[in-house]
Write a protein that binds this DNA or RNA. Structure first.
Length: 527
RNA sequence: GCGGGCGUAACUCAAUGGUAGAGUAUCAGUUUUCCAAACUGAAUGUUGAGGGUUCGAAUCCCUUCGCCCGCUCCA
């Protein structure tokens, strides 16, 4: 695949090339449009991958929405309340204006290395000597109608005498080393202009005029905020409660890389949990803990999973004053020894609801009847407020990739030196039923057991049946697919009524009654 | 976006500018039956794509697409 230096032996780091090869070989993940040479940043899921991804999506849906946190109580001592929502990929363009996604991301921008400020390239102007003669002295950039204009003019006149103003665009970038950025002290801190079209643009309607521009959503979260009022008005939810939303999002990444880790089309599982600002800290801590436990429960246990709190200087605009932001990170083979983000848990304050209230002029507050002063009749007066929001936002594709990387195991001593240790809940194939011999009535018994298992558990994942080839080969195939259990009908089955159960991870076998197989598998699958 | 590396069958890889091949995997059959056994046979390629040089290109040149690595980017 590549000539990249392989990891040193015994480093404990798995080979990403080998994982990608297995993913293709067994039908987990294919390159999108591969027969046409592929398309950068897009991936398709094969039969096993599609089932596995559904299993992970279902696990989130079940554990976040249907039975939040397994029935655990929230910090307020009450059961956690979550409702589902499914919102559109294309929203009104004003949604992205309000959220801040649109401003500054459809035009070329320049960054200031000193102040970290970002300016629209076509808005930046520069004070240069009025004569226009080349000079070694610094010139001064500013944005008109901002405080930087007067400040920079003063500095420029002091340094250069008479000045005139030109657009930054008119000055070649190789002369930018003498420019002082609008809010900077030093010269030469502006980066070259870059296009940041992170959002995919499209047109609504068949005429495709510039008036019809719309965008594919870069996150699912905004759909929740936009429908917050409808959910509050039409259901009986009371703060604190959450809204969960799963779906595709799109970002025109500058550099899609690392298999499915950074792709341009990806699926998110986002929860926005609304609570009163007074309780934000408790709920933030609660969700941090819950989300870590959830990933652990699916097999990402151990050192490869960690929780990392963001430093103050990397906090997003909406989170400066909040309870915090953290990432749940996984040590992917391509990030090792570092980590890559799997899920972000953020206290967003009430930034989003406030923004949408401003832009739509629709009141986004919640009337909380359990707050406010106590009335003589024993009830509360009630209080209007814009709830704060805790956002655990997970990447579904990244989750699948992490589970694949974690499950991938190499053991040269085995007939199948590579195998996938999927948690039974995630495994795309739940079990296989094999007659040891393809005769003597064994296939008939196996087919019956296969039908029983399929009827009972076929909705959760595939149940395999195969009578051909020797048994070792069939086991090996299931090892690579990550199937946790193989039930084998052998010569003793017709007389003793027992089958063998082969455990994928150990290769060990035990005999159980054929009438116990359905219950055995149900217990292992946790259903 | 910049720099480097690499593209041959599903996978791993061969093939001096001169008939595109092997092993594995897949499929069918025989035999065997608890860990990728053996035998027989089948199918599989616009050599990433498009141009050029040449009597002749997987091989040399150009363009482009994709993948990997390092920068950059990632509100």
């Amino acid at each position: 695949m590549s000539e990249a230096p392989s990891q040193p032996p015994n480093s404990g780091v798995k080979s990403m090339d080998a994982i990608m090869a297995l993913c293709k070989r067994r039908g987990f993940i294919y390159q999108a449009s591969e027969i046409y040479g592929g398309i950068n940043g897009f991936w398709d899921y094969g039969p096993l991958g599609a089932q596995m991804k559904k299993n992970l999506r279902d696990a989130w849906w079940e554990d976040i929405i249907m039975l939040p946190c397994g029935g655990a109580k929230g910090p307020d001592g009450e059961p956690v309340s979550i409702v589902p929502l499914e919102t559109c990929i294309i929203q009104h363009p004003k949604v992205w204006e309000a959220s801040g996604h649109l401003s500054g991301f459809s035009d070329p921008m320049v960054d200031c290395r000193e102040t970290k400020a970002r300016y629209r390239y076509d808005h930046v102007q520069v004070f240069v000597p009025a004569g226009g003669a080349p000079t070694e002295k610094p010139s001064f950039a500013y944005i008109s109608d901002t405080p930087s204009e007067a400040k920079q003019r003063k500095k420029a006149e002091k340094t250069l005498g008479a000045v005139k103003s030109v657009l930054l665009m008119e000055i070649p970038t190789d002369q930018w080393s003498r420019i002082v950025a609008p809010d900077a002290e030093k010269v030469g801190t502006l980066t070259e202009p870059k296009q940041f079209n992170l959002m995919f643009k499209t047109y609504v309607g068949a005429t495709a005029s510039e008036d019809d521009v719309a965008y594919l959503r870069p996150e699912t979260a905004q759909g929740i905020f936009v429908q917050f009022k409808n959910v509050v008005d039409t259901t009986r939810v009371k703060v604190p409660f959450g809204i969960g939303n799963i779906g595709k999002s799109f970002r025109n990444e500058v550099t899609p890389r690392n298999f499915t880790f950074r792709s341009r089309e990806f699926e998110q599982m986002e929860l926005e949990f609304f609570c009163h600002a007074d309780q934000a800290r408790e709920w933030y801590a609660f969700w941090k803990k819950q989300r870590m436990e959830w990933w652990r429960s699916l097999g990402l246990a151990g050192d490869n999973l960690r929780l990392r709190d963001h430093q103050t200087d990397e906090l997003a605009h909406y989170a400066k004053a909040g309870a915090g932001v953290c990432d749940i990170e996984y040590r992917f083979p391509f990030t090792a020894p570092g980590f890559g983000e799997l899920e972000g848990v953020a206290h967003r304050g009430n930034f989003d609801l406030t923004q949408h209230e401003k832009h739509s002029r629709i009141k986004m507050q919640f009337h909380d009847k359990d707050r406010g002063e106590l009335l003589p009749n024993g009830q509360r007066k009630g209080e209007w407020y814009t709830p704060d929001c805790i956002e655990p936002a997970a990447g579904l594709d990244r989750g699948v990739l992490a589970l694949i990387c974690e499950a991938y195991t190499v053991d040269p001593a085995r007939p199948s030196p590579e195998f996938m240790k999927f948690h039974p809940r995630i495994a795309p194939i739940k079990a296989a039923v094999y007659p040891l011999r393809n005769k003597d009535g064994l296939p008939e018994i196996a087919e019956k057991l296969h039908a029983d298992l399929q009827k009972k558990y076929g909705r959760l994942g595939a149940i395999e049946y195969e009578a051909k080839q020797n048994i070792g080969k069939r086991y090996a195939r299931m090892d690579e697919a990550g199937c946790p259990f193989c039930f084998t009908i052998d010569a003793d089955t017709p007389t003793a009524g027992t089958v063998t159960v082969r455990d994928r991870d150990t290769g060990n076998q035990e005999r159980i009654g054929i009438d116990k197989v359905v219950a055995f598998l149900g217990e292992k699958l946790g259903v």
